[in-house]
Every structure is written in C-alpha cells, then in structure tokens.
Amino acid sequence: MEEIKQDIKQPQKASETKTDEVVVELKDIKKAFGSKVVLKKVSLTLKRGENLVILGRSGQGKSVAIKGIVGMLTPDEGSLKVFGDEVANMDEKQLKTLRTKVGFLFQSGALYDSMSVRENLEFPLTRVLKIHDQQDLDKRVEEVLSSVGLKDAIDKMPSDLSGGMRKRVGLARTLILKPEIMLYDEPTTGLDPITSREISELILEMQKKYKTSSIIITHDMECAKITSDRLIVLNDGEFVAEGTYQELEKSDKEFIRSFFK
C-alpha cells in the first residue's frame, strides 16, 4: 500500500514543467441552455505545463466549460482566450489551427468504429497534417501506440478492444497531432479501479513526454490525486473552491470534503 502511495506521489513532479505563461483563460463565462443556466460567471486560468483538475458532481457543467475551449460551444457572456486569442472571434481557419494545438479526449474514447486502430490514428494525420507517405504514417502510428502500450492492437477494430484499451487508443489518436493543451472529459469513467489508475498514470506520463498542459474533468478522486497540480471544484455553475489536492482535502467546507471521502 505504501509502495502504491509513493508511486502516486512521484509522478506529481510533472509540475516541474509548469511556467507562468497562461495558455487558457476563462473570464466571467456564462452559458445557458434554454432556461437552464449551466455556467454562471466562471473564471479560470491554465498555465503552460500545468495539470488542472475540475471536480464536480454530474450535470454541473464541467464538460460545457471545456467544450468552449475548442469552439464546440460558444459562451453567452464572458471572454474565453486560448494562447491569448479570443475563441469566439476566430474564423473557421483559425479554429481549425487551434484544434490542432488542443487535443480533446472524450469520455467514451470516441473511436471511429468503422475503422481499425491504425486507420483511426492515420485519420487526423492524413486529414489535418496532410501526411500521405505510408512509411511516415506507419512510423508515427507505431510510435504513439508504443507510448500508450498498445502496439499489438494496431490492426484490431474498436469493437475488439476493452474499455481501457479504447481510452488508450483515444489518447493516442489525440496525442498523434502533438497538441500543446490536452482536455480530458472524465477519462476514467466506466473503468475498474486498476485500469483507472493505469489511465491516470498514463495521462501524467504523456504530459511529461509531450509537455502538454491539461485540463482534466473528473469525479474520480484517485485520478484527481494522481494527475492534479491544482484542483477547482464546480458546483451549481460556479467554482466554489480552488487549491492543491492536499489543501482541498482539509477544506473547512463539508461539501468540498465530501469529494474526498
């Protein structure tokens, strides 16, 4: 048990890559769907090399907050800047460029189920980076699959993969474009504790290898403990607490402490 704890603590030194440069800045963001207000005046910053975890109960608008970063949703009010540029003011070309720099790992992995693992990984390379040399494609695909430990699954179909493997392939497909920012939408949901831990450690390992800044949305405290440099807690559309895992664990607010039980 002690050994595991040490394993968990050690990778947290990934924060050594952190700088003061702000790569994502949300200021007073408000978003409503019909009459339901999901985000009320939400503000946050993500620094280069930092791992920021957003905690919160289901349906509190955690995913909505990060979908705006890649222009999938437009906030009703407030400012959302990525690398200093306002996302709402970007045209289609600028948005496409931004999306090559920001990777998004979906909760389900979102693998293209009509394509093999190889084709899934080649898809962004041929469409976004316009790489068509088969040797180059093979090299990049094999390299990133080795990083996530799934080189043997290269010719399998998504339906042949387990939940954890699908997440790994999803992560590999996102990392293959070498993004500067990674957004993880509940990366460990639906996985058993051992696989969850493996995915959390993989996130940290990939952050070190590819030097990414990350926002991780989760309600898995083990994942938060392993991956976070800083945590923010979202409740009723507002951020109600911010700090390191250790700080929030000792919070005087019962609601915050309830996440750690």
């Binding site: 090559t100 979102a110 693998l111 497909r173 474009l177």
Partner: peptide, 21 residues
C-alpha cells in the same frame, strides 16, 4: 450513432472536416 458516441465531435475537434468526410 456516430453523433451519440461523440465520433463526429471527435472528428471536428481534431481539426478534420466531418462534413466533407
């Protein structure tokens, strides 16, 4: 089904063009 399983969103956020494909 691709929409429900976020495959179309994944194509879009990777910078690929799901409309074209």
């Amino acid at each position: 089904s691709m929409k429900v399983t976020e495959q179309i969103d994944a194509m879009e956020v990777s910078g690929a063009n799901p409309m074209q494909y």
